[in-house]
Design a protein around this nucleic acid. Structure first.
Lengths: 243, 243
DNA sequence: GCGGCGATCTTTGTTGACAATCGACCGCCG
DNA sequence: CGGCGGTCGATTGTCAACAAAGATCGCCGC
């Protein structure tokens, strides 16, 4: 029942072995990786059987995912993996823009050598994974790059809001990635971001964030419209169950 | 397991009678009203007995509260009502400033007669409850006033983040109110807020929000420092159980 | 053929008991 | 008298079964 938030300092968390946490991790990863596609039905009984546990811990894990917005539950009818609407993706990007600007605002005057080093390191990791063609890893590393400013801002509330968004963002990217197939971030996509983040012009950083999000949002918009055209207009009901 | 988010439009939610939701409501209200003070221990077994239900539904309600940050759980040791640190209150105010500006930004060009009318209505309600000396209601109505812009922004993600903050904000106000005793918001505190919100100068609105939060934060700072001096420096451990 | 109606079946909500884990207390030994 | 180990108690984690609620679907009357 505790929320441990993986160690942020040197990751010293030993390991949590409660079923709930293991299930939570497994489910989250399944959803993000696309093994459980948006709209897929979730049956408590079936999943419990598959994991070899009772419905108790499983239920609690589902509860967390529901509260995070990765699952949607309609009482006595069924639980399914959340399906992002264009509106929702729009909201994620616009809110994220504000939050990320705020994060930079918080950390701006406190940036030091360690900040620059870590940001650069994450950027290099991103480049490396793009180079090696591992799209899954690229997405993770892009997220890690952006996450850094939230971690460095020293604002735990902001960080927890970001972590909430992060899940949905991954959900969207997973769908995007699956649909367009093998199309991770571009290598040059974060050069300006890194340059501004290490520079001395806050206004430029702010402008870069807005642009960066707009670029991401542009791809999004195209993708969502295309999907809508393919699958027919959404009426608010979840996609038909797969599997 | 569903998250119903009390109806935001005309409050038209029928009634949810699952134990979990009733318990959730009862606990949240107890915490906010101060019946359960920060640091107070929460025993699953005892509470279950008091409510006359088993630990199952109670546990799920606690889980939600924990994820919301109103409760803190240390596995195998105990669960207690969260105790806000000065840092945390600072974070709430600073984040809230950003969010509220963003909310106005979203709604600014879409404000219409209905917007003005509802905002005015909530302000009058606030004035009325201040006049009648009901501090509990004053706090609720102040929150309702500020909530309106989040509801009107038409940004569901923003609204859900705000709702997350709202709980902690109430927790803080409850402590503040209990300590200073009978000292609700001042009648003139929101005149400028209302005027700017209905005016045509967005920059003025932004400035007003920043100022408004700073005023709130000032009172906070004083209060927290005073409490710290009274109760001795905090070492990170929860306050001793009251009850 | 069609609409209302009831049985059935799936899914969630709830329960009481049992097991694992950890902190605190107490007696023992050096 | 102080440190140490074991035991006890409290608390959370887990389980399997039962109950309730709603949806689905076939049936009957019209």
């Amino acid at each position: 029942m505790d929320v441990v938030e993986g160690g942020s300092a040197p990751g010293w968390t030993l390991k949590r072995r409660t079923y709930r946490d293991q299930i939570l991790e497994a489910l989250r990863s399944s959803i993000i990786s696309g093994a459980l596609q948006p709209g897929a039905r979730i049956s408590e009984a079936e999943l419990a059987g598959r994991f070899g546990v009772s419905r108790g811990p499983l239920r609690e894990a589902l509860g967390v995912l529901i509260q995070e917005g990765l699952l949607v539950s309609i009482p006595f009818t069924g639980t399914h993996v959340a399906d992002l609407s264009p509106t929702e993706v729009d909201e994620i990007f616009s809110l994220r823009t504000q939050l990320e600007i705020f994060a930079f605002q918080q950390v701006w005057d406190r940036r030091d050598a360690a900040f620059a080093q870590e940001l650069t390191r994450r950027h290099e990791q991103l480049l490396a994974s793009i180079d090696s063609g591992d799209d899954e890893a690229s997405i993770q590393h892009e997220l890690a790059l952006h996450s850094f400013v939230y971690e460095a801002a020293g604002h735990s509330l902001l960080l927890s809001v970001w972590n909430g968004l992060r899940g949905k963002l991954q959900l969207y990217w997973a769908a995007h990635h699956r649909a367009h197939g093998r199309r991770g971030p571009k290598p040059e996509g974060h050069l300006d971001y890194l340059r501004c983040a290490l520079g001395d012009d806050f206004a430029a950083m702010e402008a870069e964030i807005r642009e960066h999000m707009l670029r991401g949002f542009g791809r999004t918009q195209d993708f969502m419209r295309a999907r809508e055209a393919t699958q027919g207009p959404r009426t608010g009901r979840p996609a038909e169950p797969e599997q």
